[in-house]
Design a protein around this nucleic acid. Structure first.
Length: 802
RNA sequence: GCCGGUGUGGUGGAAUUGGCAGACGCGCCGGACUCAAAAUCCGGUGGUAGCGAUACCGUGCGGGUUCGACCCCCGCCACCGGCACCA
């Protein structure tokens, strides 16, 4: 036996796989298909991270197992290459983002190939490739056509000195972070995708898919559906109603005031009848200066101003109540106005206390002189609702009354907001819209796609906060596709999340120039059977891509309502110091170094063995050496090999048990225990001192998905015939997993006192007899009476004595 | 504040979901091989007491249910993640 030389063996097999096209996926209706998807990387300049290796190794093992099980497997990879880090590198180094991206992709590709992942390299997609982003733009236009794209004016922070739009973080304290000039509020038009229209579909679709429970929960919370009621309050002084949203219409009799957002349009509308309009304006300006952070930190100290000139009328009591403006009510949720029930809402309570407003109890159970009571209880002070104790009943009853009176109805609200979709940056997909002075927003005709990102020398953002594209006259100036007059192109680009919202569809047919993918390919491969990725994408990419997919389903472009049948997530790899790996901390492990020193197989086995796949675990080089030792021991088995094409009796149950354990554990992503089972098996072989050919072949087949290079090499050296990746996944027989004799634990009062060996098929009465005859048990029972005897088949006997 | 997760030896983590707590790996201790070291192989390894068979203690803390609890129930604590004045 030669020495195990990992670098030689690994490059040898990687070349063979590449030359043979081993992992190329082709449509084949004779085989069941399996589409395994991992999140394609953002090709950063830093290169790959061991975290990438762990993220891909999970489904890599599943995919290789599926092939051995006879599936036709699609396991693709690509690059999500548009984005800010690349653009910033370009600005800093003066190298064009196209070149930066190409270099980074090259680097990532070589790193991925060195690990021996079984990706189909013929299907690589690059979101910045014009053959790809043509279809990203195409989908955008389809959405535009279907009314899911709109523009809206919103208030943004703007520095008049720097002439730049600032984020809240850049404008703390109401001053520009750079020049300390006072920030002004400026209205700017922004592109939106109407994702809220799909809120219910995104929510309902979760019932059909197999996602980890916490992933579903996070998405549900993010969408944040709440049911309640809209209620219209008449304004006493005007022919006007103020509409509010509430989840607690049952507390309507406890309403003592109303609050509207500082930006609520009713103020502007009646400014001539509002005596303290100037005060309200001042308050609004103050609020606009506050950062998000301040707005959420000052929760307890409520602020606000009473509107002098507008009074509301409670629709059920007819009582007149004051209206306040306060920043604890947001314009972006509900109607931007609330009915305040201080007795039963903590925020309203704080506000009422501060402003000396009446607090009326309508639900018994708390002490409203001390705090708001938000629990359930008997209704009081509520006219016809009095005496009701079930919230649901009270809500139904009041809703009926509101509907009869025509002053309110059932309603639904979502926390999720529409998707602000444009960025003032260069390195992204150009938004294919033309602004025509006569026709307004006009779509670029489909046949003109892709709308190419023009090559530029200067991709620095403009000083006025405009996209660098705005400076390129040849790009900006165009003819209106509708009327032919002079028009201007939109110069903003799409956000990073656009390209990744449909890449899994492109993998099905990556080179198609007629469609985003052919119907045939989509019908064969979709949906993705198993998608694995990071938790950080659950409420971003995972929601966005489900939204795009559901839209494409609605317009008949794809055949499944959900893109992913199953979704799992891997845990982080922490640095050796137990903290998240980061460049600044200097605890990053480079996979290249590990491959050089230990080999790809060791790296692959280790990232899956280091702990629970879904949990974060710290890197440990010495622990990785254990995996190296394991593979060395496997290699050394070649010297212990004996003939035999059936498992030997002494190995029989171990073999079958291990096949069962490894097969099941891979399916539940319990890779660590699957590897542990193989380690246990090798320990057993060392104990016996030999392994026969049948046993060895099964062993390397089970390990093949984890350590494909060394197992292929052993397979070849042992002349088993053909290649390992073409063999069948081993099967097991449940009956043979059981040993002839089994060890039973004998307990007295739940404490282990002895162990007995019995034939596996022994009857209960006999087992109990044997157990009671055991000398330790006889001794322990002396002078006591047996109260109860319990036998758990194949496990234990418990004798209860007094 | 709300939602979710985690808590087990010196250490990373197991435990077929109510049935031998600590699989497997690391580390450590001892032995073999070696002039020696490394590598490898064999054995040991939760704590306390005991030469020992063995006994007692032990899964963040305090209760409970059960013949039996890391697992289920009630009440706490700590750490991690997400959302956060969402009406």
């Amino acid at each position: 036996m030669g020495k195990y030389n990992h670098s030689e063996i690994e490059s040898k097999w990687q070349k063979i796989w590449e030359d043979n096209g081993t992992f190329k996926a082709e449509i084949n209706h004779d085989k069941p298909k399996f589409y395994g998807l991992v999140e394609f990387p953002y090709p950063s300049g830093a290169g790959m991270h061991v975290g990438h290796i762990k993220a891909y190794s999970g489904l890599e093992v599943v995919s290789r197992k599926r092939r051995l099980e006879g599936y036709n497997v699609l396991f693709p990879i690509g690059f999500d290459a548009y984005g800010l880090p690349t653009e910033n590198t370009a600005i800093k180094t003066g190298v064009h983002p196209r070149i930066v991206t190409d270099n980074n992709i090259k680097k990532f590709t070589s790193q991925l190939k060195r690990v021996g992942f079984s990706f189909d390299w013929d299907r690589v997609v690059d979101t910045t490739d014009e053959g790809y982003y043509k279809w990203t733009q195409w989908i955008f236009l389809k959405m535009f056509e279907n009314g899911l794209v709109f523009r809206d004016k919103t208030l943004v922070n703007y520095c008049p000195s720097c002439k730049v739009v600032l984020s809240n973080e850049d404008s703390q304290g109401g001053k520009c972070d750079i020049c300390h000039t006072d920030i002004v509020q400026k209205t700017k038009e922004v592109w939106y995708l109407r994702i809220t229209e799909y809120a219910d579909k995104l929510l309902d679709g979760l019932k059909e898919v197999d996602y980890l429970p916490n992933i579903k929960l996070q998405q549900e919370n993010w969408i944040g559906r709440s049911t309640g009621a809209f209620v219209n309050f008449k304004i006493a002084e005007q022919d006007e109603t103020l509409r509010i949203y509430t989840t607690r219409p049952d507390t309507l009799y406890g309403v003592t005031f109303m609050v509207i957002a500082p930006e609520h349009p009713i103020i502007e509308k009646y400014k001539d009848s509002i005596a303290n309009y100037a005060d309200l304006e001042n308050y609004k300006t103050e609020c606009a200066k506050k950062s998000e952070f301040e707005r959420t930190q000052l929760v307890k100290d409520k602020t606000g101003v009473k509107i002098d000139g507008l009074t509301a009328i409670n629709p059920v009591t007819g009582k007149q109540i004051p209206i306040y403006i306060s920043d604890y009510v947001m314009m972006g949720y509900g109607t931007g106005a609330i009915m305040a029930v201080p007795a039963h809402d903590t925020r309203d309570y704080d506000f009422a206390k501060k402003f000396g407003i009446d607090i009326i109890e309508v639900i018994k159970g708390g002490d409203i002189s001390k705090e708001a009571y938000t629990g359930d209880g008997e209704m009081v002070n509520s006219d016809i609702l009095n005496g009701i104790t079930y919230k649901k009943e009270a809500i139904e009853k009041i809703l009926k009354i509101l509907e009869e009176k025509g002053v309110g109805e059932k309603g639904v609200q979502y926390k999720m907001k529409d998707w602000a979709f444009n960025r003032q940056r260069y390195w992204g997909e150009p938004i294919p819209i033309v602004h025509c002075p006569d026709c307004g927003m006009v779509a670029v005709p489909y046949e003109e796609l892709p709308l190419r990102l023009p090559p530029v020398d200067n991709f620095q953002p403009g000083s006025d906060g405009e996209s660098p594209l705005a400076k390129i006259d040849s790009f900006v100036n165009c003819k209106c596709p509708k009327c032919g007059k002079d028009a201007k192109r939109e110069t903003d680009t799409m956000p990073q999340w656009a390209g990744s919202s449909w890449y899994f569809l492109r993998y099905c047919d990556p080179k198609n120039s007629e469609a985003l993918a052919s119907k045939e390919a989509l019908e064969y491969w979709m949906p993705v059977d198993w998608y694995n990725g990071g938790m950080e994408h659950v409420t971003r990419h995972l929601i966005y891509s489900r939204f795009w997919h559901k839209f494409l389903y609605d317009i008949g472009e794809v055949n499944t309502p959900e893109p992913y049948a199953k979704r799992t997530a891997q845990g982080l790899i922490l640095g050796p110091d137990g903290v998240k790996m980061s460049k600044s901390r200097g605890n990053v492990i480079d996979p290249n170094d590990v491959v050089d020193e230990y080999g790809a197989d060791v790296l692959r086995v280790y990232v899956l063995f280091m702990g629970d796949y879904e949990q974060a675990a710290p890197w440990s080089e010495s622990s990785m050496k254990g995996c190296k030792r394991f593979l060395d021991r496997l290699w050394a088995l070649q010297d212990m090999l004996v003939d035999g094409d059936e498992y030997r009796p002494e190995m029989m149950s171990s073999m079958h048990k291990t096949i069962k354990k490894v097969s099941g554990d891979i399916e539940s992503m319990a890779f660590n225990t699957a590897i542990a089972a193989l380690m246990t098996l090798i320990n057993k072989i060392y104990e016996i001192g030999s392994v026969n050919r049948a046993e060895y072949k099964t062993f390397i087949t089970l390990l093949n998905p984890f350590a494909p290079h060394i197992t292929e090499e052993i397979y070849e050296l042992c002349k088993f015939g053909g290649m390992l990746n073409e063999q069948k996944w081993p099967s097991y027989d449940e009956k043979l997993c059981i040993d002839d004799t089994i060890e039973i634990v004998v307990q007295i009062n739940g404490k282990v006192k002895s162990k007995i060996n019995i034939p596996a098929d022994m009857e209960q009465a006999e087992v109990l007899a044997v157990a009671k005859a055991d000398e330790n048990i006889v001794k322990a029972c002396e002078g006591k009476t047996v109260v109860k005897e319990i036998y758990v088949k194949g496990r234990l006997v418990n004798i209860v004595v007094k």
